[in-house]
Nucleic acid binder design. Structure first.
Lengths: 236, 236
DNA sequence: CGCGTATTTGATCTATCTCAAAGGCCGTGG
DNA sequence: CCACGGCCTTTGAGATAGATCAAATACGCG
């Protein structure tokens, strides 16, 4: 984990929900109080037990938010895409860790500094609230998925969600790239690795998807997949 | 559903997270733009398909937030206690309905009116964001519960959560009152009615709880129940 | 090329679901 | 005031989706 000076105006996440709330002048203030962190694949941005007086914005790379139980069970709360914001202000982040699925560049701010920025730029507070609203809406979708769907529906939901997020964050649409392992997917969907693998095989046989390799998915029958997932998707 | 004039300063939810953010002067402004709604048991405050340009605060009574799938599966997203706030500003409420477990009194505001109030009282925006943060933290707990816990752990989690919420919202501690049906509990925990019932019987036999009647629970072995639930509980 | 890890597949097991029915509680109407 | 009907809860018996255990294959990396 190293730190470097950054330049917001040339940042690839400049258009992210957090940063785009500020105009060209104000962005320099955000820049001035930011720290750029490089996190390599498999390492953590922060962990549950960390002091957590920071908030973060993903610049490049992908990651996940997870929570572990004392006996080792794991729930992935979200997969993180470039532009994603993590953090609660002024409340500290609660009981989650953020890890890297790939090498990542992450911007980090001290909560206190952000609070000062809020005082100067009220529209920033507004934006933070909007981001929070969106996260809540996504999390409710996920709650519904975990509580009501069976394994096949869960995987369909997951694939469509990943496709949509990838489209918005990266602009790629041909194939869905899955930087996470089957185990990560399992922990996101509340099922086991073996079940994830079996369902992949099954929906491939059903002609719903193709698997050029295990980390690339091409949707062949979107209509049916959407019907199975019952996923309309919130706009990211 | 009837409407009456209200008086915030004498409202039993005056200390709620929403209303307590304003001082005695400002509360009159909140009062002036509020509509009091009476919702009787079994009816809805609002439903998924409603235009949803309002936000709400529970004054008295209890309810739930639910989402239904097209084939009738149901997920209860939250149980609502007096003082609970519902709503996203300026985004509309998404795909959830709010129903009454008991007769309820609910305050309702037009989102536009609240936005005007925010302009006048910036601390109100701040408060809204804090409320959102809290809801998110609760929802993440729930996500973890749904994804990782087995039926017994889920019920233990539920009972401790209800106890804590009841303590904060109503100040009652002797017994846990459950105004919801076994079916509601099932839909909250992502299991079936029969399983809920069986687990109640089981943990009663195990000496963890007593059931004076099916809607009242007394915790007999809190230590073990907490260990099973792995629930520390966020502060409500 | 060979090791370690991830994925897939197979064979069983089991927690929970489903289907079914009995018992209890409550409100309604006679 | 009691009887009836409907709903909720509990309990039982059997079915099953998904978990667990185990092993073979495939993949990426040094």
């Amino acid at each position: 984990m190293s730190m470097n000076p950054i330049k917001c105006h040339s940042c690839s996440a400049r258009a992210s929900r957090l940063c785009s709330s500020l105009d060209e002048d104000a962005i320099y203030e955000l820049d001035a109080i930011a720290t750029r962190i490089e996190v390599s694949k498999g390492n953590y941005i922060f962990q549950e037990e960390d002091p957590s007086s920071y908030v973060y914005n993903i610049s490049t790379g992908m990651g996940y938010l997870e929570r572990l139980s004392s006996d080792g069970r794991r729930q992935i709360m979200a997969f993180l895409f470039p532009g994603d914001y993590i953090g609660l202000i002024p409340d500290p982040i609660v009981n989650v860790s953020a890890g890297g699925l790939t090498d990542m560049s992450v911007c980090r701010w001290n909560i206190k500094d952000i609070e000062n920025l809020i005082d100067k730029h009220p529209e920033f507070e507004h934006r933070l609230r909007r981001i929070g609203n969106r996260v809540l809406a996504t999390t409710l979708d996920q709650l519904f998925m975990l509580g009501c769907k069976d394994a096949r529906e869960k995987l369909a939901f997951f694939l469509l969600q990943m496709e949509k997020r990838q489209l918005v964050a990266l602009g790629e649409i041909e194939t869905i790239h899955l930087p996470m392992t089957r185990g990560d997917i399992a922990d996101y969907l509340g099922i086991t690795v073996e079940t994830v693998s079996r369902i992949f095989t099954r929906i491939k046989k059903e002609g719903l998807i193709e698997l050029p390799d295990s980390n690339e998915v091409v949707i062949k029958n979107r209509e049916l997949l959407e019907e199975i997932a019952e996923y309309n998707g919130i706009d990211y």
